[in-house]
């Protein structure tokens, strides 16, 4: 196995691992919202932290999903032209449009890092009544975007392999792996 295919497999595994854990946050968000309703309605004593914590977790949940979804081809597109093209031509097309993908994600990565660094310089808190630290959630923006960029790179390498018949990647294995998940 070459360095390239090891890199590609590694990144996909990483996103899978991260995604499978982050996905469980839905249970936590559910539990906290329910808890708040219970505290407020049954005991007349709303908490200061449940809704805000749910909100923060949701932010992490959403922004960390990019790479996992990319790995599972879950970012929806318009397949009007795609569906009529042979795999190699489709790969060529995807290589070209990936420029737009990288422009967006790299810009976001750059300013996400900037934002997170700024936030971490003061260990920023929310200054709400509960006042929790929010820098970890801001940090999730560059981390989540970084994972997306890496998975985008994997996709680009796959497309290059398909377009130019290179042997570091064979699409069939990937497709089989996909089946197992969903």
């Amino acid at each position: 196995m070459g360095v390239l295919s090891a890199f590609m497999k590694g990144i996909t595994r990483l996103n899978d691992f991260v995604g499978r854990w982050i996905a469980l946050l839905v249970f936590v968000m559910f539990a906290f919202l329910l808890l708040e309703v219970g505290f407020r309605y049954l005991f007349n004593s709303p908490t200061v932290w449940t809704n805000e914590l749910t909100q923060l977790l949701f932010g992490v949940y959403a922004v960390m999903s990019g790479g996992y979804i990319m790995a599972h081809r879950g970012h929806v597109n318009v397949d009007l032209i795609h569906s009529h093209l042979a795999p190699r031509k489709r790969a060529f097309l995807d290589i070209i449009t990936s420029v737009v993908f990288f422009i967006f994600t790299l810009a976001l990565l750059w300013f996400g890092i900037d934002m997170a660094r700024d936030s971490m310089s003061s260990w920023e808190t929310s200054f709400s009544a509960w006042n929790p630290p929010i820098w970890p959630v801001k940090l999730a923006i560059p981390v989540g975007t970084g994972l997306l960029v890496l998975q985008g790179l994997v996709k680009l390498l796959e497309d290059i392999a398909i377009a130019f018949n290179l042997d570091y990647y064979r699409p069939s294995e990937q497709a089989e792996e996909e089946e197992e998940y969903l």
Binding site: V48, N51, E52, A129
Partner: peptide, 21 residues
């Protein structure tokens, strides 16, 4: 039960009302 935010939420809670955001 009062809808509040920020410092006033802390204050109202401290004072004994149930303040939530």
């Amino acid at each position: 039960k009062i809808r509040s935010s920020g410092a006033l939420q802390t204050f109202l809670t401290e004072a004994g009302a149930a303040a939530s955001y």
